[in-house]
Nucleic acid binder design. Structure first.
Lengths: 213, 213
DNA sequence: GCTTTGAGAGTACGACTGTTCACTGACTTC
DNA sequence: GAAGTCAGTGAACAGTCGTACTCTCAAAGC
């Protein structure tokens, strides 16, 4: 082992992570634009000044939170895309996967849903960029399926974006519904997904007029 | 005229409206949970104390804003539903109607998009209730169309909700894109709408197995 | 004409905010 | 083992915040 991290840097990372975790917790009942710097440091047990050793301000912390949340989202999308088999069951499993991830890590998903349209521009853009990346990822996966023969890249992106937006909307609905309303949300989310899938199956029906490839 | 409003009550309403307008303006760059009571009164030109003559706090003001915004949204939905004619053109006109309304009253739509998942529970619930009402309204209108023969009430509600959510998402996308990105947003929104419509047209294809009515 | 009402002003309160500065002392580096 | 680095401290800054009082004085009610 050539270079271990060093006690010093390890402590720093630990504090930084503490700030991120505390912020995520505090954001359950408020928006990022009202999150106080002191509020976060108090929850961690450090002085306000220490905050600046890690972030320029709460906006920068928000962007860092977006990057951290990437893992949660990416893992979920990966799990959904990795699922194979009959398309009907696949939809059901996808929604259940979403529900499971949301239950396991509510704070991350709440953060994304809340700040996607929130008051801090930098964070909004960071989330938008991330979701755009996911939409492309989904589009690529969809393009590899036989059902997507003849689809333009643009339409695949549209469909990928539709799935991603639907996913975010579902996570938010699950969070708002709570445990008792989860089954109903899952029901509707499945139906919506099915409708989109039906639309996908017949997307090219009326287009075979002369163009090809 | 039995009872004119009275100079006194007229002034009060004027101040109240001033508070609402000022708040809506201030909310362009921040969320409701960070909106200060004093900040609003300062923008109107009244003392902080005067605020309490109209609202219990900023949360109550937020709920009042939701009710006020009802007009903007309802007018837009009415305009879309009133549209008739060929379904393909209708989609295009719907999206253009949305774009026009968003351009005309950006603040109202931004408010709804932002606070729909925002940090103030009461406002979130007020918006959810309102959108639910719109979804029912749309579902009813859809049910009256010949394309909806054989649709269950639940599926109509699902479709109505899908349209409403898509609408809100589009307004938010338009606001984030700005004037220069509007055309692209409109393009994608139209395509999404078309996909849903295709799905709608074939929704019952695989269901004719035995049940009827 | 009198009294009553109530929207808004004015003042004051303690608590909280973001940011600055000089500082300490444990860790790293040579 | 001495010198340097730097994450975190502690105090202080000028503001802002929400809310509680009393007060005013024009409109409303009789």
């Amino acid at each position: 082992m050539s270079h271990t991290i060093g006690i010093r840097q390890a402590q720093k990372l630990k504090t930084r992570q503490g700030l991120l975790d505390a912020a995520l917790g505090l954001l359950e009942h408020q928006s990022l634009s009202s999150l106080g710097l002191r509020e976060v440091t108090r929850a961690v047990g450090v002085t306000p000044t220490a905050f600046y050793r890690h972030f320029d301000g709460t906006a920068a912390l928000g962007v860092a939170l977006v990057e951290e949340t990437l893992d949660s989202l990416h893992g979920m999308i990966g799990a959904i895309l990795a699922d194979t088999g009959d398309s009907e069951e696949r939809l059901d499993r996808s929604v259940e996967l979403i529900a499971r991830h949301v239950t396991a890590q509510p704070a991350h998903f709440r953060f994304i849903a809340r700040e996607q349209h929130g008051g801090v521009g930098e964070v909004r853009e960071a989330i938008a960029a991330q979701l755009r990346g996911f939409a492309e990822e989904v589009a690529e996966a969809l393009g590899a399926e036989p059902e997507s023969a003849g689809w333009s890249r643009e339409d695949l992106l549209m469909l990928g974006g539709l799935y991603v937006d639907h996913m975010v909307l579902t996570t938010s609905a699950l969070l708002d519904a709570g445990p008792e309303g989860e089954r109903e949300v899952v029901r509707v989310a499945r139906r919506r997904l099915r409708l989109v899938t039906v639309g996908r199956a017949h997307w090219l029906d009326g287009e075979a007029l002369g163009s090809e490839s």
